[in-house]
Design a binder for these strands. Structure first.
Lengths: 125, 125
DNA sequence: CGGGATCCTGCATGATACTG
DNA sequence: CAGTATCATGCAGGATCCCG
């Protein structure tokens, strides 16, 4: 028996996914691609996100150094979020995922449907 | 108020992540990069994965048309998994994530540590 | 306006035992 | 060997209320 040579802690794939693979992270980054956005505006633009999740996602991205947070202490407060230079390095990756999805996701969807049909017809009883 | 223009169902980022963002999927794909692997061998190579999770992950990938499954009905059975042509189109994407992680993940880790230090020193009481 | 704090719920993950 | 079935659980995600 050989020792395990693949582990989550070491696999570099997992590192990026650890950052991006929450439910909302990708959408938040997407909303920041074109520049600074205010908190409230993001709430309005990202369909279905709750305050808690938006805040939590932004905090994580801030912690990871991918998103900058700028507070203007007026009343009512203005809080703006922007991709940091580090965060912007993610954009090409995201775009590549984007291209892959555009090119191949229809194929995946078709594969799923066929697979599901096969499953259903086999499980009659 | 403008209508939300970003949604999970439409954002192409989310489509790929929907496929890859389970705990084990990336590692399973990684283990298949160099060709066909048997079930038991994957169990041994991927550190910490359980039978249930390996099977479940493989089934999902099979359903998505990314992984092929070949059964040789002998006793004891031989089951081999391979990336399909569609699955192989994912490899360049994964490699790009890999490169990003190698280049920038240390930076992220540093950002986290600094962020955490700032948090801790502020929360004395 | 932009959150923080709290409570609740479901699903992803995991441990264990059994089978063709 | 390569699974399926069952049971347990922890945490991501969501709803709600409150605050500077």
């Amino acid at each position: 028996m050989r020792t395990p040579d693949i582990s989550i802690e070491e696999c570099t794939y997992s590192h990026v996914l650890e950052i991006v693979s929450n439910k909302w992270t990708a959408l938040v980054i997407y909303s920041l691609e074109n520049g600074t956005v205010r908190y409230g505006e993001m709430m309005g633009r990202i369909k279905g996100i709750s305050q808690k999740m938006l805040t939590q996602t932004l905090r994580q991205l801030e912690r990871d150094g991918l998103v900058g947070r700028k507070v203007t202490p007026v009343v009512p407060p203005i809080v703006e979020y922007t991709l940091t230079p580090l965060g912007e390095t993610l954009i090409p990756c995201m775009r590549m995922l984007n291209v892959w999805a555009t090119d191949h996701f229809p194929h995946v969807k078709k594969a799923r449907e066929e697979y599901d049909i096969g499953e259903t017809s086999g499980t009659i009883a």
